[in-house]
């Protein structure tokens, strides 16, 4: 077993708040997944390693990953072409690990759909890392759906280096798992690159959710928008770190992080850390957070329509997740998600 810290914020604060990073204990024994990545469109195997790209997991996690699983699956999306990757990771008895490096050449478009699933009795770990070099004019769509058992630990580390005029759309849907660590480190290095990110989650029982997004803006007129929305029930614990980092030379950049958390249990714990770091004058940065319970007006209105409190909570929880489904850029995945949420309801 190894002890690591994961999901560090770029600029730490008081240690006693326990938000600077999260400690994990992790086994050194992993298998490669049974299922191969399913590819549509133009995607070529490659030997290129993207070791210079850092992920949201942080330096110590990236280094550990490199040691434990030296061989990443590497791909290239040729210039001007499109590709779709469906990456289903299904945990059973053994913990699995997958590292993927993708180089999206200029003007290419790549969609990545990651589903992290588990067999019914599985309590294994799923570890996944995506590093993406996005050349100028490329479009990256990244969707993560975490839906394990209440005993699976799911760790996802994402790092994207975006050159000029790159569009990045990320969606993270957190449905189930015991301990889920996720996030993204998106370096908007080239001018006019853009990130939009939507995160929706529901946490229940003893679930732990640990999210770490950071966006260094280096290029002029870069834009980022991160929106997180979720519900905490039971004894669940959630930490959301969202950092907008305006570096010198990011003239004309703008960034926003916001989170809306609905607390439905007195035993749930919420930590929200929206950070802005700024070394540039001509930027516009903002963040906002709203944390609380269901408003009494809303509760009264819905009860007056004949709904019980548990039905109201179910509807609200589902609607937060369902609102993200239309944004998923893949019809079969949308259909699967709609069915999955219907089962939950």
């Amino acid at each position: 077993m190894q002890e690591l810290s994961i999901n560090p914020i770029p600029s730490p604060t008081w240690n006693r708040l326990n938000v600077n990073s999260s400690p994990i204990r992790i086994s050194d024994t992993f298998c490669l997944p049974d299922r191969a990545i399913c590819v549509e469109g133009s995607l070529l195997p490659s030997r290129e390693k993207l070791n210079t790209i850092s992920t949201s997991g942080g330096t110590s996690f990236d280094t550990w990953l490199e040691t434990i699983s030296p061989a990443a699956e590497s791909f290239t999306v040729p210039a001007g072409s499109s590709a779709l990757l469906r990456d289903d990771l299904v945990a059973d008895a053994s913990s699995i690990i997958r590292r993927v490096d993708i180089h999206a050449m200029p003007g290419s478009r790549v969609t990545i759909i990651v589903r992290q699933l588990a067999e019914e009795r599985s309590d294994a770990d799923i570890i996944q890392s995506y590093r993406i070099q996005a050349d100028s004019g490329s479009e990256i769509q990244f969707v993560q759906i975490a839906d394990g058992t209440p005993r699976n630990r799911i760790i996802t580390a994402l790092g994207i280096q975006a050159e000029e005029n790159v569009g990045i759309h990320a969606i993270q849907l957190i449905l189930q798992g015991s301990d889920i660590y996720t996030g993204g480190r998106i370096e908007l290095a080239g001018p006019s690159s853009r990130l939009s990110c939507k995160i929706a989650y529901q946490c229940d029982e003893d679930q732990l959710l640990d999210i770490n997004w950071s966006v260094p803006h280096r290029g002029e007129k870069t834009e980022s928008q991160i929106t997180a929305s979720g519900i905490l029930r039971g004894r669940s614990r959630k930490t959301f770190r969202g950092t907008i980092d305006f570096r010198r030379s990011s003239t004309g950049a703008s960034g926003n992080v916001s989170e809306d958390v609905l607390l439905l249990s007195d035993d749930a714990q919420n930590q929200t850390v929206p950070v802005i770091l700024c070394q540039e004058e001509d930027v516009a940065g903002s963040h906002g957070a709203s944390i609380g319970r269901l408003s009494e007006e809303m509760l009264y209105y819905m009860q007056s329509r004949g709904l019980s409190e548990s039905e109201i909570i179910q509807i609200l929880s589902r609607s937060r997740l369902a609102s993200v489904i239309p944004l998923v850029p893949d019809e079969p995945t949308r259909a699967w998600l709609t069915q999955r949420l219907a089962i939950d309801a």
Binding site: F246, L263, A268, Q271, S286, H287, G288, A289, S290, G292
Partner: peptide
């Protein structure tokens, strides 16, 4: 800023801009 909230019956808002 850090917000650490451990009860459901709370109302916390935070806004910042630069």
């Amino acid at each position: 800023p850090v917000m650490d909230i451990r009860t459901s019956d709370a109302d916390v808002g935070h806004e910042a801009k630069i």
